[in-house]
Design a protein around this nucleic acid. Structure first.
Lengths: 149, 149
DNA sequence: CTGCTTGCAAACGGTTTGCATTATT
DNA sequence: AATAATGCAAACCGTTTGCAAGCAG
């Protein structure tokens, strides 16, 4: 896996402590998705001056560069995560966390009718209850352990 | 297809002119998805007093009753559409409209690994270019004709 | 008559923007 | 030295909320 520094340089972005810290957070736990504020909260202890606006600009820049992906949630906020390939999603209805997953059996998948629509890609979201919430039914709605595919 | 009035009564909701008008709009063009403000804009000519807040409350109530579905977009707004079964989605990258579609080949679809995650449902989003935008490359980003599956 | 629903307007909260300052190249 | 990124604070904008007045059941 590339380091934050290598990834930033590879896109010809200027390397700043803020960018390195934000990206390192995602690289540490691939498959995790966080809101901008949650990212900032995690970095604040080690980087107390990190501005809210900077966090937003940084995340947007990483999305523009194809390093991060952006997930829209029905509560009106955005979640960010590493853009891993292939990346489909599993949403746990209990803890409301998003996981990056891979899927099998995609070959058979077809759009029914509408043959004139050109399909360029397919996003799949599995919904249900993640292994952690099933194992520990007493404490749902918590942040689950790091996801290691 | 049920009428707006029948649908509202079936959920034991009070029947008001506002609710009837909002729901009729969706029933007229099943498969379409609109923002709250776009719904209001369409109704304003025939219902000039319709309040913004009422539109939002009405749409939320229909979602709560399972009549409408809510789609989150990356620009931070929400789109509403009839909750049709089965309903997967096609997103046109050109006109940025959402279509309700059905899919074939779902039987083979499996979550890869993570066998302890309980899958309750699967949402599929096809992305590409819709038939209308391909046929008329000169005028993309327009509202497409009514979608009739 | 009762209480849910509406209209209005203010509040909310996540995100974006403007600009002077600072840091990277 | 040139230019891009940061910090800060205000602006933005879609959505929610509170409440008095109105209407459905």
């Amino acid at each position: 896996m590339l380091t934050a520094e290598e990834l930033i340089r590879s896109r010809r972005m200027r390397l700043t402590p803020q960018r390195r810290a934000v990206l390192a957070l995602f690289l540490d736990q691939p498959g995790k998705h966080w809101s901008a504020d949650h990212v900032r909260d995690q970095l604040l202890p080690s980087m107390p001056e990190l501005a809210r606006g900077t966090t937003y600009k940084t995340l947007n820049e990483f999305v523009r560069q194809g390093i991060l992906e952006e997930l829209a949630t029905v509560d009106g906020s955005l979640l960010y995560g590493l853009r891993l390939e292939p990346h489909h999603h599993f949403f746990c209805e209990s803890c409301r966390n998003w996981y990056d997953v891979t899927a099998r059996g995609l070959e058979q998948l077809r759009l029914d009718g509408l043959t004139n629509h050109l399909v360029e890609s397919v996003d799949i979201t599995f919904r249900g209850v993640c292994a952690h919430c099933q194992a520990d039914q007493k404490a749902p709605h918590q942040t689950p352990p790091a996801h290691t595919p």
